[in-house]
Design a protein around this nucleic acid. Structure first.
Lengths: 231, 231
DNA sequence: AAAAAACTGGACTATTTGGTCAGGAATATG
DNA sequence: CATATTCCTGACCAAATAGTCCAGTTTTTT
């Protein structure tokens, strides 16, 4: 996972945030972009637990420890904050998931995918939930991203998986459905955290819990695809 | 699935809706409980697409084709509507999922569970999304339900699965994780509908799509548990 | 050191919100 | 028919909301 991805020029920008007037573009000005980050962190917490519509700018400001008008100085309106967050999430997503080639080993590749995705759920549960909410609400902001970048991403991987199947390197399962399966089962540990914790009678996750869950998923899914579990 | 579950006395009630004054309890009065249903249907649509906080009573009223004050006559406040919906969802959930016994066949039982859950996602996607939102938001209303009824439900099933494992009737996998897996992967088709449709370049699901997905899940998950896929 | 730019925050506003209420219509009951 | 009960509704309100405005303060640049 690349860390400094703030100014990755390769990253596609989301559709332009709805601007009112031209307004002052907040430039990378010195040290006080710390505020910017604080605001975004606060906004992520608030949006991911209540959704866009139910979150008030005041709540974000309070959590960031700044007066409301100051928040609105950095992001001229609520939507802009939301767009900025979505953009960040999609950027991280793009950074994390490397390419796959037909000559790679199916088992280790899929296992690696599960692992990375689980790590994502563990370290960025808020982002995961924010994404989930956006999708459940009909993806008003990300709709285009879904049907372009993400669609292509899935179809490329699906084609490689299909090749693995055709060359007899794994069982015959629908590649796209397989990706859905990995996606949903890993996402679940972030999005439905409360449910899982309640069922497992725990107060919080440990790293070990995630490792256990990742191993479980790897075993079942790989075996389900007629693959030997690596290592 | 029992249809007339309106007055099932066995159904546990959710914690008492926050009542202001004693207020007129809307009695099963004659024919005009049609309105009640219309309101609930409208509320389900609105809540499930925007969450509780971002939905306005006016929107519900508009969708139900009634004046706001009339809506508030049936449900004295917004929370009451939400509680009523949650109650309905949990009731349906309880109705649908029958018991499992150690002497049942693991493969057909698990396959049946996947099938029923998928059917639920297909026929009640709004309810599914509403539930998902409630959980993502920290389950403010359902928290108790999760850590009592649902926890017990899962643990009972997990124990049966464990017996199947101990008697060598299926592979050794963590039963609770297995239930999470089935839950998440089936839920996904309702909650992340937009994402799936975008990726698969479709406008809407067909019954066939669901059948295909259900078969895929059954195959992979059962095989992943070292089971033969029935029929 | 002075000018320019970036930042801060209190006061303000137009609009929207959940919810109340008093009275009107419809229906049932005598 | 009268009258009591149930059902319905427009008008209303206090609270909250997103966003503006601007006078001042701090930081950066020159």
């Amino acid at each position: 996972m690349t860390e400094q991805n703030k100014s990755d020029p390769s990253r596609q920008q989301l559709s332009p945030p709805p601007s009112g007037q031209p307004k002052v573009k907040v430039r990378p000005g010195r040290i006080r972009q710390r505020n910017r980050e604080q605001i975004l962190a606060a906004a992520e917490k608030e949006f991911s637990s209540k959704g866009f519509g139910a979150t008030t700018v005041q709540q974000i400001a309070d959590r960031a420890g700044l007066p409301k008008s100051n928040v609105l100085y950095y992001f001229s309106n609520k939507k802009r904050m939301y767009y900025a967050l979505m953009d960040g999430i999609m950027g991280r997503w793009n950074d994390v998931f490397s390419n796959v080639r037909p000559e790679d080993d199916p088992a280790t590749t899929l296992a690696g995918f599960i692992q990375v995705k689980m790590e994502m759920s563990r370290t960025h549960p808020l982002a995961s939930r924010l994404f989930a909410m956006e999708i459940i609400q009909g993806a008003p902001v990300l709709k285009e991203y879904l049907s372009t970048s993400m669609k292509d991403w899935v179809r490329e991987r699906a084609m490689v998986i299909q090749q693995w199947i055709d060359t007899g390197r794994m069982g015959n399962v629908d590649p796209v459905q397989l990706i859905h399966l990995i996606w949903s089962s890993t996402q679940h540990y972030a999005d439905f955290q409360v449910q899982i914790l309640a069922i497992e009678e725990k107060e919080a996750y440990t790293k070990k819990d995630f490792k256990h869950a990742a191993e479980f998923l790897t075993q079942v899914i790989l075996r389900g695809c007629g693959l030997e579990v690596p290592e």
